[in-house]
Protein backbone atom coordinates (compact mmCIF):
# COMPACT_ATOMS: atom_id res chain seq x y z
CA UNK A 1 0.00 0.00 0.00
CA UNK A 2 2.91 2.31 0.75
CA UNK A 3 4.05 1.71 -2.80
CA UNK A 4 0.65 2.75 -4.15
CA UNK A 5 0.65 5.87 -2.00
CA UNK A 6 4.17 6.75 -3.12
CA UNK A 7 3.19 6.14 -6.73
CA UNK A 8 0.18 8.44 -6.43
CA UNK A 9 2.36 11.18 -4.94
CA UNK A 10 5.04 10.81 -7.59
CA UNK A 11 2.47 10.86 -10.38
CA UNK A 12 0.79 14.01 -9.08
CA UNK A 13 4.15 15.70 -8.64
CA UNK A 14 5.27 14.70 -12.09
CA UNK A 15 2.12 16.07 -13.68
CA UNK A 16 2.42 19.32 -11.78
CA UNK A 17 6.06 19.72 -12.69
CA UNK A 18 5.42 18.92 -16.35
CA UNK A 19 2.57 21.40 -16.46
CA UNK A 20 4.69 24.00 -14.75
CA UNK A 21 7.53 23.61 -17.22
CA UNK A 22 5.08 23.78 -20.06
CA UNK A 23 3.57 27.02 -18.83
CA UNK A 24 6.90 28.67 -18.32
CA UNK A 25 8.39 27.63 -21.61
CA UNK A 26 5.46 27.84 -23.94
CA UNK A 27 4.81 30.95 -25.89
CA UNK A 28 1.47 32.72 -25.98
CA UNK A 29 1.12 31.62 -29.59
CA UNK A 30 1.67 28.14 -30.95
CA UNK A 31 1.89 26.98 -34.53
CA UNK A 32 0.34 23.84 -35.88
CA UNK A 33 2.27 22.65 -38.90
CA UNK A 34 -0.08 21.91 -41.78
CA UNK A 35 -0.25 18.64 -43.63
CA UNK A 36 1.85 18.38 -46.74
CA UNK A 37 0.20 20.33 -49.55
CA UNK A 38 0.61 19.41 -53.19
CA UNK A 39 1.16 22.42 -55.41
CA UNK A 40 1.49 22.45 -59.16
CA UNK A 41 4.40 24.07 -60.88
CA UNK A 42 3.46 27.44 -62.24
CA UNK A 43 0.21 27.53 -60.30
CA UNK A 44 -0.62 29.57 -57.24
CA UNK A 45 -1.94 27.51 -54.34
CA UNK A 46 -2.98 28.51 -50.86
CA UNK A 47 -1.54 26.89 -47.77
CA UNK A 48 -3.43 27.69 -44.56
CA UNK A 49 -1.25 28.07 -41.47
CA UNK A 50 -3.02 27.51 -38.19
CA UNK A 51 -2.06 29.31 -35.00
CA UNK A 52 -3.45 29.13 -31.52
CA UNK A 53 -3.29 31.90 -28.95
CA UNK A 54 -3.32 30.69 -25.37
CA UNK A 55 -6.43 31.38 -23.36
CA UNK A 56 -6.44 34.82 -21.75
CA UNK A 57 -4.01 36.31 -24.25
CA UNK A 58 -4.45 38.39 -27.35
CA UNK A 59 -2.05 39.64 -29.97
CA UNK A 60 -2.27 42.68 -32.19
CA UNK A 61 -3.65 42.11 -35.65
CA UNK A 62 -1.65 42.69 -38.81
CA UNK A 63 -3.07 46.21 -38.90
CA UNK A 64 -3.32 47.56 -35.37
CA UNK A 65 -5.11 50.88 -35.10
CA UNK A 66 -2.58 52.45 -32.82
CA UNK A 67 0.67 53.38 -34.48
CA UNK A 68 2.92 52.30 -31.63
CA UNK A 69 1.56 48.78 -31.35
CA UNK A 70 3.50 45.87 -32.79
CA UNK A 71 1.70 44.23 -35.65
CA UNK A 72 1.53 40.51 -36.14
CA UNK A 73 3.52 39.68 -39.22
CA UNK A 74 4.51 36.46 -40.95
CA UNK A 75 7.93 36.55 -42.54
CA UNK A 76 8.82 33.67 -44.83
CA UNK A 77 12.07 32.67 -46.38
CA UNK A 78 11.12 30.35 -49.25
CA UNK A 79 13.55 28.24 -51.24
CA UNK A 80 14.67 29.52 -54.61
CA UNK A 81 11.98 29.09 -57.30
CA UNK A 82 9.16 28.94 -54.76
CA UNK A 83 7.45 32.29 -54.80
CA UNK A 84 5.35 33.56 -51.92
CA UNK A 85 2.78 35.53 -53.86
CA UNK A 86 0.59 36.68 -51.04
CA UNK A 87 0.08 36.41 -47.29
CA UNK A 88 -3.50 36.92 -46.22
CA UNK A 89 -4.20 37.67 -42.59
CA UNK A 90 -7.49 36.91 -40.93
CA UNK A 91 -10.04 39.54 -40.17
CA UNK A 92 -9.21 41.15 -36.87
CA UNK A 93 -11.47 41.28 -33.85
CA UNK A 94 -12.29 44.71 -32.52
CA UNK A 95 -12.15 44.22 -28.79
CA UNK A 96 -11.84 46.39 -25.75
CA UNK A 97 -10.11 45.24 -22.62
CA UNK A 98 -10.39 45.96 -18.94
CA UNK A 99 -7.26 48.11 -19.00
CA UNK A 100 -8.85 50.48 -21.54
CA UNK A 101 -12.57 49.77 -21.78
CA UNK A 102 -13.29 52.83 -23.90
CA UNK A 103 -10.78 51.86 -26.56
CA UNK A 104 -11.17 49.19 -29.23
CA UNK A 105 -8.08 47.28 -30.23
CA UNK A 106 -7.62 45.34 -33.42
CA UNK A 107 -6.49 41.93 -32.24
CA UNK A 108 -6.48 38.20 -32.75
CA UNK A 109 -7.37 35.75 -30.01
CA UNK A 110 -8.09 32.05 -29.86
CA UNK A 111 -7.37 30.22 -33.10
CA UNK A 112 -6.53 32.01 -36.28
CA UNK A 113 -5.30 31.12 -39.72
CA UNK A 114 -2.95 32.90 -42.10
CA UNK A 115 -3.29 31.98 -45.75
CA UNK A 116 -0.05 31.76 -47.68
CA UNK A 117 -0.26 31.73 -51.47
CA UNK A 118 2.72 29.90 -52.95
CA UNK A 119 3.61 29.50 -56.59
CA UNK A 120 6.45 27.22 -57.63
CA UNK A 121 8.12 28.41 -60.77
CA UNK A 122 7.86 26.22 -63.87
CA UNK A 123 11.56 25.53 -63.60
CA UNK A 124 11.47 23.91 -60.18
CA UNK A 125 11.99 20.17 -59.94
CA UNK A 126 9.10 18.16 -58.50
CA UNK A 127 9.99 17.37 -54.90
CA UNK A 128 9.14 18.36 -51.35
CA UNK A 129 10.27 21.83 -50.34
CA UNK A 130 10.38 23.31 -46.88
CA UNK A 131 9.43 26.92 -46.32
CA UNK A 132 10.79 28.40 -43.13
CA UNK A 133 9.92 31.64 -41.47
CA UNK A 134 8.69 33.26 -38.32
CA UNK A 135 5.63 34.90 -36.92
CA UNK A 136 6.40 38.20 -35.26
CA UNK A 137 3.88 38.99 -32.58
CA UNK A 138 3.46 40.77 -29.31
CA UNK A 139 1.04 39.35 -26.78
CA UNK A 140 -0.82 40.88 -23.89
CA UNK A 141 -3.25 39.64 -21.33
CA UNK A 142 -5.80 41.71 -19.46
CA UNK A 143 -3.23 43.52 -17.35
CA UNK A 144 0.21 43.20 -18.87
CA UNK A 145 2.10 42.95 -22.13
CA UNK A 146 4.91 40.60 -23.00
CA UNK A 147 7.92 41.54 -25.11
CA UNK A 148 7.68 41.03 -28.87
CA UNK A 149 8.47 37.48 -29.88
CA UNK A 150 9.31 35.47 -32.96
CA UNK A 151 7.64 32.11 -33.36
CA UNK A 152 9.44 29.78 -35.78
CA UNK A 153 7.17 28.63 -38.55
CA UNK A 154 7.81 26.01 -41.21
CA UNK A 155 5.78 23.99 -43.62
CA UNK A 156 6.39 21.73 -46.56
CA UNK A 157 4.93 21.81 -50.01
CA UNK A 158 5.05 18.98 -52.48
CA UNK A 159 5.71 20.41 -55.92
CA UNK A 160 4.18 18.33 -58.66
CA UNK A 161 4.18 18.77 -62.39
CA UNK A 162 1.89 21.38 -63.86
CA UNK A 163 -1.78 20.64 -63.71
CA UNK A 164 -3.30 19.47 -66.98
CA UNK A 165 -4.31 22.40 -69.13
CA UNK A 166 -1.72 24.75 -67.66
CA UNK A 167 0.53 25.77 -70.52
CA UNK A 168 2.48 28.76 -69.37
CA UNK A 169 5.40 27.94 -71.59
CA UNK A 170 4.10 25.87 -74.49
CA UNK A 171 7.42 25.84 -76.30
CA UNK A 172 8.97 23.76 -73.53
CA UNK A 173 5.94 21.70 -72.70
CA UNK A 174 5.91 18.04 -73.67
CA UNK A 175 2.21 18.49 -74.36
CA UNK A 176 2.64 21.46 -76.65
CA UNK A 177 1.35 19.53 -79.64
CA UNK A 178 -1.99 18.78 -78.06
Amino acid sequence: MWRTALLVSMLALGLAAADDLGLNRRSAVTFQAPELSSVHRGTASTVPLQFRIASGFHINSNQPKQEYLKKTELKLDPPTDIVIEKITYPEAQELSFAFAPEEKLSVYSGNFSIQVTVRPLQSVLPANYAVHGRLNYQACDKAACYPPKQLPVSFEVKVVKSAPGIKRNPAQSPHAHS
Binding site: A5, A12, L13
Partner: peptide, 23 residues
Protein backbone atom coordinates in the same frame (compact mmCIF):
# COMPACT_ATOMS: atom_id res chain seq x y z
CA UNK B 1 -4.52 1.47 3.46
CA UNK B 2 -7.27 4.09 3.20
CA UNK B 3 -5.46 6.39 5.62
CA UNK B 4 -2.23 5.96 3.69
CA UNK B 5 -3.94 6.78 0.44
CA UNK B 6 -5.58 9.88 1.91
CA UNK B 7 -2.23 11.02 3.34
CA UNK B 8 -0.61 10.54 -0.06
CA UNK B 9 -3.33 12.48 -1.85
CA UNK B 10 -3.19 15.32 0.68
CA UNK B 11 0.60 15.59 0.39
CA UNK B 12 0.33 15.54 -3.39
CA UNK B 13 -2.30 18.25 -3.41
CA UNK B 14 -0.22 20.43 -1.10
CA UNK B 15 2.79 20.04 -3.36
CA UNK B 16 0.77 20.71 -6.50
CA UNK B 17 -0.76 23.86 -5.02
CA UNK B 18 2.67 24.93 -3.82
CA UNK B 19 4.08 24.61 -7.31
CA UNK B 20 1.12 26.42 -8.82
CA UNK B 21 1.44 29.25 -6.34
CA UNK B 22 5.12 29.58 -7.20
CA UNK B 23 4.51 29.61 -10.91
Amino acid sequence: PIVLLVVAVVISLMLVFGIQKTR
